[in-house]
Each structure stands twice: as C-alpha cells, then as structure tokens.
Write a protein that binds this DNA or RNA. Structure first.
Lengths: 140, 140
DNA sequence: TATTGTTATACTCTATAACTATA
DNA sequence: TATAGTTATAGAGTATAACAATA
C-alpha cells in the first residue's frame, strides 16, 4: 500500500528544500522583495494575466484577504496594476506591468535554478513523470 | 523540455491544497493544537524517534531555533520528552511520549484523509510512481 | 441571497544573529 | 574552531470574521 501520511511528509520535505534554497538566494533574483508568495502570484500572473482576484485565490488556494494585501504590496512596488472588470462591477482585473514582466523573468531564473538543484537526483523520465502527475492534480 | 518554474508552481498548489484541507478539519484530529509544523515533527518522530534535534532540523529543512521553540511547545503539551544524549553532551534526544504516540495515530488519520482526497485524480500506478519519485528526492 | 473584494485581528511560521556549552 | 542547542526579535504567511458594493 501507499502510505498517504508518508507522502505528505515527502511533499513537505521537498517543498521546504526548494523554499530554503529560494530564500537563501533571494537577494539574487527577488529584487523587489515580494517574498515566496509574491513570487508565486507573479509567476501565476505571467501565465494567466489579466486575471480576476478570485481566480488567483482559487488557483493558489490562498485566502482572499491575503490576496488583497499581497496585491496591494505588488501594486505599491509597481509590479501589477488593478483595473475594474468590464463584465462584473464586483470584480477586479489584475495584470502585470512592464516592470512586473521584467521581474518575472528574473524570478523564473532563480526558481528554475533552485528547482533544478533539488530535482537533480531524478532521471529525465522521472522528472517528466513528476511534472505530468502533479499537473493532473491541479487541473482547473 | 520540462519547465522548472512551472513545476515549482504545481508543487506549491498541491501542497497548499493539502494544507488547506488539513487546516479546515484540524479540529477533528489536531486535539493538542500543534499546528501543521507540529504535526510534521510528530509524524517524523513516529518514524525515527528517539532522534537528535539536529537530525530533525536537517530532515525537515527547518531552522534550529524554530525546532527548539516547537519542541518546547510539544513538550509542554506532554507529547514529547527531551533527554540528554549519552554519546555527545552537546546533543539532546527527543522521543514521543505515550500520549504523543496516541496523538500521532489520530494525526495520521486526518492527514491520510486529506492527502487521499487531493490525490484522488491519480490512478494507483501514478500514486505509486509519485511516492517513488518523491522518495528519491528526500533520501537522507 | 450570494459573490467580490477590503479591512482588521490574532496566530503560526520563518530568518537572522547572539549566546552558552561541549567536541 | 566547529557543532548542538537556546533565546530574542523582526518579518512573512495564514485563518477568521465583519463589512460595503454589486449580482
């Protein structure tokens, strides 16, 4: 049988290793000091912007109040911009600014380096399998 | 090619989903209110106790000061016990108490339920492959 | 009534540095 | 000198509830 609790521990350990490496080298790529969560939001926006805030909340499984605060921070640093949603006056659209796009590129380099480092023990096929399997878990 | 940044995002999303589910149902299994990190430490001790603190620090990739604080909390709740290491007077051995062992059992049920829920989209072989791959990343 | 987003508050987790004791 | 563990502090992340505006 596959022990789910053991799986949770493995997930935690792998993610913590990645986070620790990212934090250690943050000065090299997190020039605006957006932090781990800020980085995730920027990377996500790079894929799906412009995006409604609620979409970010659901996709990243974070609290909406947290997303509000974080977006205000990113906006104050000139990395993202909020605009009213034309289809629904309750909603707000968030998009990357030009500066935001440049920072995302730098962010990606740092993240790629950390992840590559942690995944080094894997064969290319295993890496591909991992990407495939994780992809199936976050389809939406 | 396999995009490492995308992989990091998938990891984050999967782990956050698990964490969110765990938090939501915490009242059902986290009777001592040890929190997510406290749960991880207890699950780890269930596998490798008695263990030196430094081993926990390395294995979980957490800061040693954080581990000190957390262990003091767990000790105050009667879940773990510290004892001097006979081989090295600088070190401290941590072990689960009987109460700690009982709590771990309950914890495992809650974690198993959350992880099983999140991994439901996977076929059994994919689940096994995931466990295998993650296992290769945390060998030590 | 339900949803979107904001504000406020309390709690948990993390990073860093300084310190003591032992190897 | 180096390692194990502790203490202290600041910063980042998270959960919860209450609120205003719109659907």
């Amino acid at each position: 049988m596959t022990d789910s609790a053991a799986l949770a521990q493995s997930f935690d350990r792998v993610v913590r290793r990645i986070e620790a490496r990212l934090t250690k080298n943050a000065a090299a790529f997190d020039h605006e000091k957006v932090g781990p969560l800020g980085g995730m939001v920027l990377l996500t926006l790079d894929e799906i912007a412009p995006s409604r805030i609620q979409v970010l909340v659901t996709r990243l499984s974070r609290d909406k109040s947290q997303m509000t605060r974080l977006l205000s921070l990113l906006e104050s640093k000139g990395l993202v911009a909020r605009a009213p949603c034309p289809n629904d006056a309750r909603s707000t659209l968030v998009d990357l600014t030009d500066l935001g796009r440049r920072r995302v590129a730098q962010l990606k380099e740092g993240v790629t380096e950390a992840v590559t480092d942690v995944l080094r023990p894997l064969e290319p096929e295993e890496r591909a399998a991992l990407a495939d399997i994780l992809g199936k878990l976050v389809t939406d």
